[in-house]
Amino acid sequence: HIDGLKACMELFEELEKGGIQNCFFEVNVCEGGCIKGPASDKWQQSLVRAKMDLEDQVAYQEEAQGIEGRDIELQKTFKDRRVHDRTPSDTEMEQILHAMGKYTKEDELNCGACGYPTCRAKATAVYQKKAEIGMCLPYAVAQAESMSNIVMDVTPSMIMIIDKDMRIRECNKKAREMLGVSREEALERYIFEFLDDKDIAEVLNTRQQIVHKKLNLETMKLTVVESIIYIESLESVLVTYQDITREEKAKEQHYNLKMETVEMAQKVIDKQMMVAQEIAGLLGETTAETKVTLSKLRDSILFEEED
Rank of each mutant, 00 (worst) to 15 (best):
T124P: 00
M52R: 14
K79T: 09
R167G: 10
N256E: 15
T286W: 03
D163A: 04
A144R: 12
G180K: 11
L47C: 07
T118M: 03
E16D: 07
K173V: 07
Y241I: 05
E177D: 12
E68M: 02
Q21H: 00
A59V: 05
I231W: 04
M160T: 03
V239T: 00
V151Q: 07
E260N: 11
F192C: 03
G69R: 09
V203T: 05
E306K: 14
R70N: 00
D243Q: 09
A123I: 02
V237E: 01
K174W: 05
N149M: 12
Q61F: 03
E202H: 04
E63C: 10
K271N: 14
T77M: 08
H98C: 02
Y139D: 04
Q253L: 07
L179V: 11
F303S: 14
F192T: 07
I231C: 06
N22S: 10
T286I: 09
R120Y: 00
K129N: 08
I228V: 13
E232H: 06
F194T: 00
A140R: 15
M147D: 10
K6W: 01
V126E: 04
A59L: 10
A125L: 09
K102C: 14
T104R: 09
M264N: 13
D41R: 11
D56E: 10
E73N: 13
C136F: 04
K164H: 11
M264I: 06
K174C: 09
M52F: 08
P38R: 04
M160K: 01
M100G: 01
N172E: 02
A121Y: 08
T286C: 09
K173I: 07
M220R: 15
E106F: 12
G101M: 09
L54A: 03
L217Q: 04
N22T: 08
K102T: 05
R189G: 02
Q45T: 10
C119P: 05
K6V: 05
K174D: 00
A276D: 09
E185M: 12
I2P: 13
E232N: 07
L74I: 02
R207K: 15
Y241F: 12
V27Y: 01
M135S: 10
T293S: 09
R82S: 15
S236I: 06
E132M: 13
S46F: 13
E248H: 10
Q95I: 04
D56A: 08
D197P: 08
A175I: 05
Q253M: 07
A276T: 03
F25H: 01
D71R: 06
L234T: 02
V239W: 02
A142P: 00
K213F: 01
F24V: 15
E202G: 00
D56G: 02
L234A: 05
I231K: 08
L257K: 01
I301Y: 11
H98Y: 11
V154E: 12
E188T: 02
E285A: 15
R169K: 13
T245M: 06
T155S: 15
I159Q: 03
G66D: 07
E14F: 05
K51T: 04
G4H: 12
R86T: 08
L187V: 06
K42Q: 06
Q209N: 14
M160L: 14
V181T: 11
G37M: 03
N256Y: 08
